[in-house]
Structure formats: structure tokens, C-alpha cells
Amino acid sequence: MKKVFGSAEEALDGLLFDGMLIAAGGFGLCGIPELLIAQIRDAGTKDITIASNNCGVDDFGLGVLLQTRQIKKMMSSYVGENAEFMRQYLSGELELEFNPQGTLAERMRAGGAGIPGFYTKTGVGTVIADGKEHKDFNGETYILEEGIFADLAIVKAWKADETGNLVFRKTARNFNAPAATCGKVCVVEVEEIVPTGSIDPDHIHLPGIYVHRLIQGDHEKRIEQRTVRAA
């Protein structure tokens, strides 16, 4: 199976449709699949639901899809760095499903493992639990959370081989790995593609069985909150 494509446009060809659910990797501005996001913007896909830890910032990452009003709903755990997100949500233009951060990661992981739901104590007694099934285990109350089964996963990794075995760097591993597993189709952008067999199997973070399409590209390395010492 050919997995390496020449561009984001080629890699997403035939995969996008209005109203779809996309799982997107990234943590803050780290590990954002920016090339694939830009192509989704250019394709004009509408009414998208996106499951992602956050929504980038106003002019970078998933934030560019907010600017073009292509996102209908966000399933997120942190949205505090995006003024346009706040404006759209408070004005009723954007639906929001808040998830505790660990719950969101586990919902993605569960979907990737074929698990439709799981019980967790996180969120019990809060608005997170509203409308969800409650069940007691050993005298403790848990709520039922559903696994995420996305139409498409878009992911950023540091390195891949030609069969799609992936290596992430540092914080970029946080949500990219679970997001990759829960999509019916997973498209990955990387900084470097190396020959098959050149990555030590012990260094592979996500096996290529989860990856369907792959592109290499140049990426902008932004710093979300720049903090420096006085001169």
C-alpha cells in the first residue's frame, strides 16, 4: 500500500466531507498538523466537529478554521488561548463539548481500541456528568464516557518511515498518538521520512498499522507563551 503522498492536498483527496468528525493531534501549539489544517481550510469543508485538546490560537493551528467559520462544534479540554473561540462560543455560533483532559485522551484511545465506552470518576458531581449514566463500583460513583470514533484523524509527528511507523518528540506525543488511532483514516504530516527499517523498533511510538497516508513538509515552530529573562 502506498502511504507517502506529495502534498496535503493529495493526502486528503477524497476524505473530506461536510459535517464530518475529525480528531486532531496537538498540545497547545506543539505537534499541530498545520499543513493538513491549511488544506482543510482551502478545501472549504463545512460544519466540522473537531475533537482536539485545544483549538490553536487566533491565527494558527485549528484557529484558522474558526476564522473561516468551518467548525460547527469543538470537543476540547482547554480553549483559553483563543479569543475568537471565546467570541464564537459566547455568541452562540460555536458548539462546545468540554472534556477533562485525561477523559478526552482516553476517549480517543478507547475509540482506537474499539471500546465504545468506559466509566470514570472524573467529572462526577459537576456539569460534566449531566445527562450521563452513573454507576457505583465499590461504593464510588462513576460516569459513562463514550469512545471517539472519528471519520478522519490528522496528526503531526517528528519522523516516520515509508510504512508509517511514527516517532514523536516530547510534548507532541501527548494527543497525537491517541488521536491517530481513533480515526477511520489517519493522515500524518512529518518533518522527515526515512527508509523503512531505519527506525529502531524500540523507538517507534505508534506503529504504521494505524497510518494510512503520510506527507513530509516544512513546519513553523511557534512558541505559545514566550518567557525570557531580563537582559
Rank of each mutant, 00 (worst) to 15 (best):
F17K: 12
A24M: 10
G26A: 05
F27C: 02
F27D: 01
G28P: 02
G28T: 02
L29Q: 08
L29G: 03
C30H: 12
G31T: 00
I32M: 01
P33L: 06
L35D: 00
L36S: 00
L36R: 03
L36H: 03
I40Q: 04
G44S: 06
K46S: 10
K46G: 00
D47L: 15
T49W: 05
A51I: 06
C55R: 06
C55E: 01
V57I: 10
D58Q: 07
D59G: 14
G61Y: 01
G61W: 02
G61H: 04
L62Q: 10
G63M: 02
L66F: 13
Q67Y: 09
T68W: 14
T68L: 11
R69E: 14
Q70T: 12
M74T: 11
M75Y: 08
S77H: 13
S77V: 04
Y78M: 06
V79W: 07
G80F: 15
N82M: 04
E84N: 12
F85I: 01
Y89H: 14
L90Y: 09
L94D: 07
E97R: 07
F98P: 00
Q101L: 15
L104H: 01
M108C: 02
R109A: 09
G114Y: 12
F118P: 03
T122N: 08
T122G: 02
T122K: 03
G123M: 05
G125V: 11
A129E: 14
A129T: 00
A129N: 08
D130I: 14
K135F: 10
D136C: 10
N138Y: 14
N138D: 10
N138M: 09
G139H: 10
E140M: 15
T141D: 14
T141S: 15
I143R: 03
F149R: 14
L152Q: 03
